[in-house]
């Protein structure tokens, strides 16, 4: 396969070699907090209210590999959707340099903003079919809290990471990181702004490592 790629051009060679050296996997489970939030929507003065019961947010973890990695090739694009008066997903991990779009899927205006130090912005009030979809580039690592200036209960998080290797756990805490390079790294599990679990991992080529946190 390497032979064929070399003959097709140097760009394929780089991608092919990188893939060959990035086949390791870490899987495991993070012990998640027992609590979950069941937000309440303030409907005091709204003449119109459709639904009104918000989906509860089960705790999840963002698991990532800390180390020195090349920056993202191109500019990845992800989305945080506003639907049923909540941010979906409620927690989105992205790599530094990612553009995040904020499409509005509710039948009313939303106004996404953040005052968090890594990214301060205010998208203003925009309609469901707003084009182009309002977006922001997240160019500094850190935690960004998303809010809506119209609906005070709405809160979402974007965790901007300086690594391309991350995944969100499921509601039971299970995670799987794939296509990892070999080497010595620190595996971290972000649970909240106050709690990040970590463990050292050694990855060989094409290795599958099982690691639970803590």
């Amino acid at each position: 396969m390497i032979h064929r790629l070399i003959y097709q051009g140097p760009a394929f060679l780089v991608v092919g070699l990188a893939r060959l050296s990035a086949q390791s996997v870490i899987e495991g489970k993070v012990e998640l907090p027992k609590t979950h939030s069941a937000p309440v929507m303030n409907q005091r003065y709204g003449i119109i209210s459709v639904g009104g019961v918000l989906a509860p947010n089960p705790p999840v973890a963002v698991v990532y590999l800390e180390g020195t990695f090349p920056p993202a090739a191109g500019r990845p694009v992800r989305q945080v959707v506003q639907t049923n008066f909540t941010f979906v997903p409620a927690l989105l991990p992205v790599q530094v340099g990612t553009r995040v779009e904020f499409p509005n899927h509710d039948p009313t205006f939303h106004n996404v903003f953040s005052f968090s130090p890594p990214k301060r912005f205010d998208l203003g009030r925009y309609r469901p079919d707003e084009r182009p979809i309002p977006s922001q580039i997240f160019d500094k690592p850190g935690l960004v809290t998303l809010r809506c200036d119209i609906h005070e209960h709405m809160r979402g998080l974007i965790l901007v990471l300086d690594t391309p290797h991350f995944a969100t756990s499921d509601a039971d805490g299970r995670f799987r990181l794939t296509n990892l390079p070999s080497g010595h790294f620190v595996l971290k599990a972000w649970l909240s702004s106050k709690t990040t679990l970590e463990a050292a991992v050694d990855l060989g080529t094409n290795a599958t490592v099982h690691r639970d946190l803590p």
Binding site: N42, Q43, R44, G51, V53
Partner: peptide
């Protein structure tokens, strides 16, 4: 303010 709901 107290906002409370029981179901939808």
């Amino acid at each position: 303010f107290l906002d409370t709901q029981f179901g939808p």
